[in-house]
Design a protein around this nucleic acid. Structure first.
Lengths: 239, 239
DNA sequence: CGCAACATTGAGGGCCCTCAAGAGGTGTGG
DNA sequence: CCACACCTCTTGAGGGCCCTCAATGTTGCG
């Protein structure tokens, strides 16, 4: 897990004097940012550390803050009493853990559990709203983030509604590989969590992986996957 | 279909002099709004009319505008050559038809077709961004809208992944009824479109409706549904 | 080593899809 | 007015996909 990154703001939309290096997790979470905005966020935000297995938040509970995962790994899903978390999303910091809940109806929409020791950064939503009024470029960053999230979710919804399990897996594999030079992937999560996110059982995922291996599309060895026939995989993933 | 509504802005967050009646579709689309913001949007937006059956936009094509449905009915989904639209969302104006596509990657993420004659309102995204910088309260409205959308989609994702068809139907029925005084619902869409949105076939929907009738939970007569046992329906819908 | 957690593999079954036929409703034209 | 085409919904039969349950293999750790 990399430490909080340091990025230089490309800043086509910022005045010259603000084109400087911004420290902290904000560039990774929000993209290019003015120094003053990052400082204002620092002033609002607070940090919290959790141990592995701890519950970050529960669905239905009050959400007065946006929650970002600065370091570690967490899973979102539904926690039923007496059962394990049924994982719907796994996050590796730095990433947004709860972006919409606080902004929407001040309730968390799902449960979240720490899968490793992790650190959170929380921004109270009411002061953030006031800040966004004073600093519209910051508001625009959140607009972009939320629009991205809507786009991703639309894609997932489509796949769940209209693709079968093997097409979903193929699409997921393709997605993991675009933007990557080497055709080798090291799975960062338990296979059961990958399966859960794809809306299938671990058994089905295992069988599909074997099937793809036997057909020569991929080569699997433990948590390492190598793509052998990316075109066929793309074709299997559908349109 | 009602004409563009007239609402009085509650405007807890607006200066006194702006608490006046805002005309046009904006209050319904965006909530309470300053008069100046509405006028600025009017200056940016353009209207367009389409006949029943026409394609509003195709997935993958350039999206340089946010698209709102001011009047009529439209469906979003995937259009495969030689097949009917597989509906994933049906919208009744006034409502947002394409909120995130233009803001996200300037591409439409799905196909949209007019199901009745309809009128659109389109806001070019680049001028809108500039406007949001000058008028942060407007940006906040879009943040809220997008956060709402994310919340709704999270719920749909959860239901598709972890609920069976009857639970999804029960949940959908419950959702249609909360915020409604009478326990009677007039279906506003074709049943095949409802089925498609719920991720099932029309045949399965028909069988489930009959099953719920036989168990005494609802009474169905054509496009009219009456809830008889709302508690049992809620229980069937799951947590 | 023993234990625990995860992954894999197989057998069986249930949910839901596909295909097909029939019923009911609506608009059109003779 | 009726025949006809067309669309939608309904109902039934059959089958495939994927889930459930159970047993086994593998890996990591005390």
């Amino acid at each position: 897990m990399p430490p909080p990154m340091t990025l230089t703001a490309p800043a086509a939309d910022l005045p010259m004097r603000q084109r400087v290096t911004v420290q902290g997790p904000w560039p990774t979470l929000l993209g290019s940012l003015a120094v003053a905005d990052a400082q204002a966020l620092d002033a609002l935000a607070s940090s919290r550390s959790l141990a592995e297995g701890e519950i970050v938040f529960r669905r239905g509970t009050a959400a007065d803050s946006l929650v970002a995962l600065t370091d570690g790994q967490a899973a979102c899903g539904w926690l039923e009493p007496g059962r394990a978390l049924s994982v719907e999303r796994v996050l590796h910091g730095p990433a947004w853990l709860a972006l919409a809940g606080a902004l929407h109806d001040k309730r968390h929409g799902c449960d979240a559990v720490a899968q490793t020791a992790l650190t959170l950064t929380e921004i109270p939503v009411d002061p953030l709203r006031l800040l966004m009024v004073r600093r519209p470029l910051l508001a625009l960053r959140f607009v972009d983030l939320l629009a991205q999230e809507v786009g991703r979710q639309e894609l997932r919804l489509h796949e769940l509604m209209h693709k079968d399990a093997s097409a979903r897996l193929a699409a997921w594999l393709c997605h993991q590989f675009d933007g990557r030079a080497q055709p080798v992937l090291r799975l960062a999560e338990r296979k059961r969590d990958i399966a859960s996110q794809l809306g299938m059982t671990p058994e089905t995922l295992s069988r599909l992986m074997r099937q793809l291996s036997e057909r020569g599309l991929i080569a699997v060895s433990g948590y390492t996957v190598r793509v052998l026939d990316s075109a066929a995989l793309q074709h299997l993933a559908g349109p």
